[in-house]
Every structure is written in structure tokens, then in C-alpha cells.
Computed example of a mutant assay.
Amino acid sequence: MKQILAKRFMARIGTAGAIASAVLFVGPLHAQNSPLSLADRVARLEQQAQNRDQSGTSLVNRLQQMQSQMQQMQGQIEELQHQLQDLQDKGKAQYVDLDSRIGRLEHASASPNPAGQPAHAASTGGAAAAATASPPPAAGSASAASQGTPAPTPANATMQAAYGAAFKSLRGGDYVAASRGFRDYIQKYPDTSLTPNAFYWLGESYYVTQNYPVALEAFQHLLAQFPDSEKAPDARLKLGYTQLELKQHAAAEATLKSVVAKYPGTKAASLAQERLRRLDQAH
């Protein structure tokens, strides 16, 4: 009996020792694992904080890029607004110029006409009125001999009516009908006292609508066919303006200087000098 009790006691002691040993073995493992888990957590938090910093930096960069793009767009908008204002000013100046010319024409047409010619036969320089009010010079006259070309034929009633219809369209702002009318007149009556005026107003109708290549041709035809016409100074001036619009700067400057040289003291020469002065300032 005593032996049995002793064996049981020893067994209990052995079991208790095993449990104690297990506790002693697991304790250090738990002590070692706990700091590693905390370090992992700290590392994870640091990584998250770093990711947040990178995201914040990326957001700032994007905002800066957007601000830069907005500034560029603002600059482009301002440049477009400036160009639009220039175009509006240019168009206004063209219409003012045309209106002033038509106004002078209307004023001239309101004066008495001793030859009984219709008012629309007058021009800004009076070339048509002078041509229709007096007969053509004799073939042996000094002016005809010096020019070497026959004088234009005086416009009859049919010619004057065709010219007047085209000019009425011009005054009404119907530049398409005006250009068509002046072209028809030139084709039907290529050498009359009103033909130089038809060429000039044809060029004006295209110039005002910014069809510069065709306007250039009209002014050049006038100067080539009627170099001594009273419309020649204005046509040469507008030729220079048209060349500027077509970016033909060297040719334009030469044309404007020729206006000053050929027609000193005229309104055309004064306008040419003013445009040359503005070109010098721009350079």
C-alpha cells in the first residue's frame, strides 16, 4: 500500500515537473514573440504614414500642374482676346474709311451738276464727273499725246445706270451684289470714264470683306490700265494696305513710299505717311 502511494506521489511530482518545464519553455518564446509583433506593427504604421506622405506630395504636384495649365490657358485667352480686339479695330477702321469716302461721294453728288449727269456718276476724286461733264480731248491734244493712250469713252445713260446700281448696293452694305455689279460693268464697259471707279470700288468691296487677294488684283488692274486716273492715288494707297494684310511687308512699304513720292500733298500721301510711321514704330 505504501509503495502504491509512493508511486502515485512520484507520478504527480513528475507531471507537475513536466508542466513547470513546459511553462518555463513557453514563457521565453512568448517573451520573444511579443516584441517582434510590436515591431511589425510599428513598421506597418511607418509604411502607412510614408504612403500618406507620398499621396500628399502627389496631390500637391497635381495641383501645381493644374495651376500651371490654368495660367497657360489664361494667357492664351488673353492673347486671343487681344487678337480679336485688333481685328475688330481693323474692321472698324476699314468701315470708317469706306463710310467717309462714300460720305464725300454723297456730298459731291448733292452739288449742282452742270452736265446733268446722275449723282452716282461722281467719285471721291471727281474723276467720273469730270469725264462725263466734258467731251474727250482731241486726238492731237497735248494731254492725249503725252499719255500715249486714247481717253476713256464718256459713260452714256445705260453705263451710268449699271454703275449706279452697283454703287447703290455698295452704299447699302450688300458687298456681294456690289462686287458682282462692278465686275459686270468692267466686263461690259472696259474703257469708259467710270471704269477706273468701278475697279476701285470693286477692290474696296473685297477689301472690306477681307478678301484681300481679289482686292489686290482689282487695285493692280486699275493702276495698270488707268495710271493717270484720279482714282490712282487712292488705289495705290489701298494696294499698300492690302499688301500689308497679305503679309507682303517689303512690297507694302515700297508701295506706300511711292504714294508719298507720286502724290505729295494729297490725302492719300498723308495716310501713307501715317501708316509708314506706324510700321516704323512696330519695328
Rank of each mutant, 00 (worst) to 15 (best):
M1A: 14
A6D: 09
F9I: 02
M10C: 03
R12P: 10
I13K: 07
G14A: 12
G14I: 08
T15Y: 15
F25E: 04
P28Y: 15
L29F: 08
A31Q: 14
D40N: 13
R41W: 14
R41I: 13
T57W: 09
T57N: 09
R62E: 11
Q65L: 11
Q71D: 12
M73D: 14
M73S: 12
Q76F: 15
E78A: 09
E78G: 06
E79D: 10
Q81G: 01
Q85Y: 07
G91C: 06
A93H: 07
L98A: 09
R101I: 12
G103K: 10
E106T: 11
H107W: 15
S111L: 14
P112Q: 02
A119E: 12
T124C: 05
A131K: 03
T132L: 07
A133L: 09
A133Q: 12
P135K: 13
P135E: 15
S143K: 14
S146P: 03
S146I: 05
A151K: 06
A151T: 05
A155G: 03
A157H: 10
A157N: 09
Q160M: 07
G164S: 13
A165Y: 01
K168F: 11
S169V: 08
L170M: 01
D174G: 06
V176R: 09
I186V: 09
P190D: 08
D191N: 12
D191L: 07
L194V: 07
L194H: 04
F199A: 05
W201A: 02
S205V: 04
Y206V: 01
T209Y: 03
Q210C: 01
P213S: 07
A215I: 02
E217H: 03
A218V: 01
A218K: 01
F219V: 05
L223T: 11
A224S: 15
Q225Y: 15
Q225G: 10
Q225D: 13
E230K: 00
D234M: 15
A235F: 05
L237N: 01
G240C: 00
L244A: 01
L244R: 00
E245C: 00
K247N: 05
A252T: 04
E253A: 12
T255A: 00
S258L: 12
Y263I: 01
T266A: 02
A272L: 04
D280C: 00
Q281W: 08
